[in-house]
Design a protein around this nucleic acid. Structure first.
Lengths: 154, 154
DNA sequence: CTGGGTGCAAATTCTTTGCAGCTTT
DNA sequence: AAAGCTGCAAAGAATTTGCACCCAG
C-alpha cells in the first residue's frame, strides 16, 4: 500500500526544490529533521523528532527542531494535526456536528450535514481499532477574513 | 435552526443529573461555568470562559475554570476540539488522507478512504467561508489498547 | 459536620525568542 | 563575504498542582 522508498525520495526532492526556490538554506540539521519526519510515517511531536535526530546530530537543540518544523509547515512541506498553535477549546454542543475552521482568524463554526453524520467507515478501520465517533473538519477562510484581505491562506 | 432556550434547559438538567448521580457537588462556580459554555454556542478557550464567568463571579479563578472544564469533559458533558491535552504533532504525509486517533494511548494512524476524499460539502458552507480542505477524524480505541483492557473509553 | 471544591501562588510543561558565533551559498 | 542558521540560555504562554480554608450536601 505504501511505496516507501519512492515516496521518500520524492519528498526529499520536493524539500530541496522548495528550499532552493525560496532561498532557504539546506542545512545539515534541516535535512536530518526533514528526513526523520519524512521517514517515520508517524505523527510525532517535536520532542520525539528531536530525540531521534539527536542520534545522528548529537549537538542539535530542541528549538532548532521547532523552528525547522514550523518552517516546513509554512512552506507546505508538512502539516500539523489538531487545532495547533492554539489553546484548548471546549465545545458544549453534544449534538452530532462538524466544524469549519478559519485558518486566518481561528474562528470555528459548527456545520450540520447529514452526509457527514452518515459516513461509512472503510473496512480497514477494523485493522486499526474500534471506532466510536467520526467528525469532519473543514478548513478554509471565513467570510470576514476573505473579505478583509485575500492574504496568506495556508 | 437552533432551538436555543429549550436546548439550554435540557443541558442544565443533564448537567445536574450527571453531577448528582456521581456525587459531584454543584457549586456556584461550576453552575456558572457550565451555563456560560452551554449558552455561548462558540468554542471558547478556558481564558475567555473565565473572563465571561468573572463578570458574574468576580472572585473566580482561572484554575477553577480549567478544573471544571476538564471535569465536564470527563463526565461527557462537553468535548474538546483538536488534539488537545497533547503537544503539537506534525505530519509529513501530504497525500489526501484522514486520521484514526486512539483516545486511550493517543496513537494516530492514517486512513485512506475514497469516500472520505470525495465528501460533498453542504451548501451552507458558503455562508461561512471558502473551504480548501476537508479532513475526517475518527476517534476510537486502537487494537492494542482494547486488547490490553476494556477500560475507560471516553 | 465533613469531604470535596475553591482561590491563591507557585510549579510544570511546551514552545518561542534574543543574541553571538558558525555555516551555507 | 554576507545572509541566514544554530545552540544556548532565558523568557513566555498555557495549564496544572499543593495547600489551607470554605461551602454544598
Amino acid at each position: 500500500m505504501e511505496p516507501m522508498k519512492c515516496e521518500f525520495d520524492e519528498r526529499i526532492k520536493l524539500f530541496e526544490q522548495v528550499c532552493k526556490s525560496k532561498n532557504i538554506k539546506i542545512t545539515h540539521q534541516r535535512m536530518e529533521i526533514f528526513r526523520e519526519i519524512a521517514t517515520a510515517g508517524d505523527h510525532s511531536d517535536a520532542e520525539s523528532i528531536y530525540q531521534r535526530v539527536k542520534e545522528r546530530l548529537p549537538t542539535i537543540s530542541l528549538d532548532t527542531v521547532y523552528r525547522a518544523l514550523w518552517l516546513f509547515n509554512d512552506l507546505g512541506l508538512i502539516k500539523t494535526l489538531g487545532a495547533t498553535r492554539e489553546r484548548t477549546r471546549f465545545d458544549a454542543n453534544l449534538n452530532q456536528h462538524h466544524h469549519f475552521t478559519c485558518s486566518v482568524c481561528g474562528l470555528i463554526r459548527d456545520i450540520y450535514a447529514k452526509d457527514f453524520d452518515e459516513l461509512k467507515l472503510p473496512n480497514s478501520i477494523n485493522e486499526i481499532g474500534q471506532p466510536y465517533s467520526t467528525h469532519v473538519e473543514v478548513r478554509g477562510v471565513c467570510l470576514t477574513c476573505s473579505q478583509n484581505k485575500k492574504q496568506d491562506q495556508r
